[in-house]
């Protein structure tokens, strides 16, 4: 306890060091994205099921043409609030390769809920070949694979600009995007107003679609999030109670010495 002042000073330095490090690092790559409010943030965060379903629709109709989601299985869509029949129907829209059969041949069949999402390209080389050498990454964990992933993704989808700023020339096939590292991105702006007709009637503005698809992808990256936070609240409360008991017992045990 004597050196508590020194200890506090050092802890403050350590925390400041960490903060400075993190904030200056992100400046060296992509610019720091603007913070958004997400329903799944914080100690009590949950996913908005309606937003998840809309986001899935955006992924399916816009993104899945180039981006895979290979770590998610169709059966996982039940977590979005779909019935077993709906999940089966989503899967059945897709043809997947299976085999070999008894003749040694590969064949195609409708996907089942137990299958994982089919990727648009069989491998990275095919993906690059179809996209001028650029690789559209698989989106299964994209919100965890970028610093401030959810804010970044939203910014990426909503900060395309028609014209680059004065004096900046865009090479052929590149687009100006404020959020992307270097501000030049090969991805064609994927979202335009009403690109998707939402089944629940919500107006499909670009910010709305960006929010919904980011929510969906955040779920895809962390499907355990709600269970994790619920368990976390219970565990921390239990530990606080248990530690309080431990402390009381410690004081009791030591009372004959103090």
């Amino acid at each position: 306890m004597r050196n508590i002042k020194a200890l506090l000073a050092v802890s403050a330095i350590a925390l400041a060091a960490g903060a400075v490090t993190v904030s200056s690092l992100s400046a060296a790559t992509a610019p720091k994205p603007k913070a958004q409010d997400w329903s799944f943030q914080g100690l009590f965060g949950t996913f908005d099921r309606a937003s998840l379903q809309r986001g899935f629709q955006v992924y399916k109709e816009v993104c899945s043409g180039c981006h895979g989601l290979k770590h998610v299985a169709y059966r996982n869509l039940a977590a979005l609030g779909y019935t077993e029949a709906q999940v089966k129907a989503f899967a059945a829209e897709v043809e997947v390769t299976d085999g070999p059969n008894d003749n040694g041949e590969m064949f195609t069949r409708k996907a089942r809920p137990s299958d994982r999402f089919k990727s648009p390209f069989p491998n990275e080389q095919a993906a690059r070949a179809a996209n001028n050498g650029a690789y559209p990454p698989d989106l299964s964990v994209i919100t965890k694979a970028r610093p401030k992933g959810t804010d970044y993704l939203y910014a990426l989808l909503t900060t395309y600009k028609e014209e680059p700023p004065q004096g900046m020339k865009m090479p052929e096939g590149m687009f100006y995007n404020e959020a992307f590292a270097g501000q030049q991105i090969a991805m064609v702006p994927p979202l335009a107003a009403d690109a998707v007709q939402y089944q629940d009637g919500t107006k499909a503005t670009v910010p709305q679609m960006a929010k919904d698809v980011t929510t969906f992808l955040a779920w895809a990256a962390e499907p355990e999030l709600e269970e994790r936070k619920a368990m976390g609240r219970a565990v921390i409360i239990f530990l606080i109670v248990l530690t309080a008991f431990m402390y009381a017992l410690k004081r009791k045990v030591w009372s004959d010495l103090h």
Partner: peptide
């Protein structure tokens, strides 16, 4: 502990409290 040191639990009451606390803590643990 009970032989050395100036203070000691005040008779039965201290013992019982300590035992309940021990039991409760052990059970939780």
């Amino acid at each position: 502990a009970e032989d050395t040191g100036p203070g000691h639990p005040a008779g039965d009451d201290g013992e019982t409290r300590r035992d309940f606390l021990t039991l409760a803590t052990a059970a939780l643990g």
